[in-house]
């Protein structure tokens, strides 16, 4: 597989930001309120926790109480869902300020957001909506990422989306669009393996080729999650990025493939619906940790041979 290892990142003219190296190369878990107490009582072996930024944009109370204490024991990744980086509307300055305060308070090892839009005008839709891949959107996304990185004084990771429709007006592939964004803005890549699988099934693409087409040297974190199965109007399979079940076998296989190309990277198990007991999620994180270890052994063998 060595022929697929990506070249060094090209950053002509990009600002002097680089993907966070902060997250430890281990498996982590999405932090859920129903697990707060058990985590503090048992301090399970985990590389990091990840939270959705917007859930902690409140003044005080139990959410901050528990996150503060959990943060004392684990590195943290803050994952935004509300910036609307792919939006036609300008970034919301108040929201950027809230984000800056949150990052200042918790000093996360990584901050990430989505290649999507969620707001239109002053309406927030609470969904990650798709955008056509055209030059005008590319420029807008780069401008927005620039504003975010400048305001937050750090590089962010951008997550590849899960989508259900495509746009007739798109002039470039999603992977080309993402590669351009990363090269122009200097942000890193949050490689969401489940999103790749979901989108590639939904649009009849080869997920392995999709991964190879991405700028893998920019990967700062990997996401794994479960999907739901539906059908489109022709009765063909339509996968939904539901985060409501265990990581599927096909996604584990794609993850192993990605690790061979990217090398071991901090990996998150995401679960946002039908939250199971913590032990079930810890078992999934151990599965990711085993694959990370194997990937890391492979790297050592390659280095020894070189």
């Amino acid at each position: 597989m060595s022929e697929h290892i990506s070249p060094a990142p090209q950053r002509c003219g990009a600002p002097a930001f680089y993907p966070d190296a902060g997250l430890p190369v281990h498996a982590g878990l999405g932090l859920k309120p129903e697990h707060f107490r058990q985590i503090l009582e048992t301090l399970p072996e985990l590389g990091f926790f990840e939270v959705h930024a917007e859930n902690y944009m409140v003044d005080g109370g139990p959410f901050h109480h528990y996150l503060t204490r959990i943060r004392e024991h684990y590195p943290l990744s803050i994952h935004g869902v509300g910036l609307s980086i792919g939006g036609d509307t300008a970034l919301d300055a108040r929201h950027l300020d809230r984000l800056a305060r949150l990052l200042d308070r918790y000093q996360p090892a990584s901050f990430s957001e989505h290649l999507a839009w969620a707001s239109h005008g002053d309406v927030f839709l609470n969904d990650l909506l798709p955008l056509p891949y055209i030059e005008q959107k590319l420029e807008r996304v780069c401008t927005h990422i620039d504003q975010v990185q400048t305001h937050l004084k750090r590089a962010m990771l951008l997550e590849n989306p899960a989508t259900y429709v495509e746009f007739a007006e798109s002039t470039m592939d999603e992977t080309v669009f993402i590669s351009e964004v990363i090269q122009r803005s200097g942000c890193g890549l949050l490689l969401d393996i489940n999103n790749i699988y979901v989108s590639c099934v939904n649009h009849n693409r080869d997920p392995y080729a999709y991964i190879r087409a991405l700028p893998l040297a920019a990967v700062g974190e990997i996401h794994l999650a479960g999907f739901a199965r539906e059908q489109d109007a022709n009765g063909d399979l339509l996968l939904i990025d539901s985060h409501g079940s265990a990581v599927a076998e096909a996604v584990w296989q794609l993850y192993e493939y990605a690790l061979r190309l990217v090398g071991p990277k901090a990996t998150l198990i995401e679960r946002d619906a039908d939250i199971p007991p913590l032990d079930i999620l810890l078992a999934e994180s151990r599965q990711a940790e085993r694959l990370l270890q194997a990937a890391s052994n492979n790297v050592q063998i390659k280095e020894a041979r070189a």
Binding site: K32, P33, E34, F36, R37, V51, H52, A53, E54, N55, Y56, P62, F63, H79, V81, G82, H114, N126, D127, L128, A162, A225, A228, E230, Q231, D232, L238, I240, D241, S242, H243, G244, E270, D272, A273
Partner: peptide, 17 residues
């Protein structure tokens, strides 16, 4: 109650078709 209330922001898709 301290842990019964959910965070309402997330990045999943629900309800399908």
């Amino acid at each position: 109650y301290g842990v019964a209330l959910q965070g309402k922001n997330d990045c999943k898709a629900g309800a399908g078709t």
